[in-house]
Design a protein around this nucleic acid. Structure first.
Lengths: 206, 206
DNA sequence: AATGTTGTGTACCATTTGGTATGAAAAATA
DNA sequence: TATTTTTCATACCAAATGGTACACAACATT
């Protein structure tokens, strides 16, 4: 249960690395979605057998949730760095170009697990679908807060609606995810990003 | 096999309406995706039993393909009417506002089957995933052709890339689908559509 | 009324699904 | 070395999966 690496653990030690196994599970969910990924798919990719998986992660649903938690915090994520950009426009630019690059990257499945992990799904996946929606809304909220800060800093005109702007940006990112999942290249997605940026307050369009 | 309503059909007549059954199947696939929809889900929604389904439609995959064919041609579709608008800008406007209205409409599942029917999916769904990608690319192609026509008619500046513009519009529509599937309202999606239109050549932004 | 053709309903198929019981194996502690 | 604690591997579970065999029912034609 405890994943803390205490000085001396009692009992037989784990023969696999939890973090690595989680990463493998993530890839399977990413590619096949919650419904499409079977336990056999998962455990064979993780290199362990079912009892080990159940004792380490609980069940399929919790495995998924832990996998996407890992996804969020992964070093190659583009979201957090983009939020830290100095101006609203640079935030949007960094976000969209980061999404274009990251989602078309073929060192992992294309698109975004947070979107395609459980979009249309069975009742068995209803819980993870809700969780994914919540996560996406949180991202949008963070964007909104960032744009409101920008308005306070005079970096964004007073008349822009931070909420709408955040939703627009999020929408384009989600569209980019679908495009990537359909096989679009990084260059194509960058063109899309630049078109979207043209309408951004303070951007190239003005 | 033949769905043609010949003058006099031989053998026992069907006890159900093929078109209606297909519509019911579409709703199930729309909500649950290909992987998430079981044959029991489908046949019970269609009001028939499995042998009838198999004799009328072939198998689960063909049922899906026929269902999305029905989806495309459905009278409430917004795509074709939008393509027929007189100017490029009006095409884009009609397309995005139509998408906003249609995808948030809760008289059917939210979002778009062509997108969420099989995004991340099992190997069993690989064929339908490819088919959906093909359909989406065809839509993009139609948009591109429409914008190229607009350029020829002097309705769109010579320097715009019809291909990029079509992809951008398609991307925003796909993003709108995700938003709708996540519970966004029609009003929220209309705001997104208007923001996207602001950067459109010949639109409000210029 | 008999025949030929097609759809329907039930009951079934092998396989796979998510999830476990159980005993052996590996380590720390005593 | 004996004990305790935890993990691992095999083998298993009931239920659900996509798909069918088969007997029967309903119609048009003869």
């Amino acid at each position: 249960m405890s994943t803390a690496n205490c000085a001396t653990a009692i009992g037989r030690p784990r023969a696999f690395d939890v973090q690595v196994a989680l990463e493998k599970a993530l890839e399977v969910f990413w590619e096949k979605g919650f419904d499409g990924a079977s336990l056999s798919d998962l455990t064979s990719a993780m290199g362990i057998n079912k009892p080990s998986m159940y004792s380490a992660f609980g069940n399929k649903e919790q495995l998924f949730l832990k996998a996407i938690e890992f996804y969020k915090d992964r070093p190659c994520g583009f979201f957090k760095p983009a939020l830290g950009q100095p101006t609203a426009y640079k935030v949007a630019e960094s976000m969209l170009l980061g999404a274009a690059k990251s989602m078309a990257d073929n060192s992992h499945p294309q698109g975004c697990v947070m979107i395609q992990g459980a979009l249309s799904c069975s009742e068995a996946a209803a819980g993870v679908k809700e969780e994914l929606i919540k996560h996406r809304q949180q991202s949008e909220e963070q964007l909104k807060d960032r744009f409101e800060l920008a308005k306070a800093q005079g970096d964004l005109p007073e008349n822009v609606d931070a909420c709408n702007l955040a939703r627009y940006l999020n929408t384009v990112m989600q569209g980019i995810s679908i495009q990537a999942s359909s096989g679009a290249t990084e260059e194509q997605l960058i063109d899309v990003a630049n078109l979207a940026l043209a309408s951004f307050p303070g951007g190239k369009g003005q």
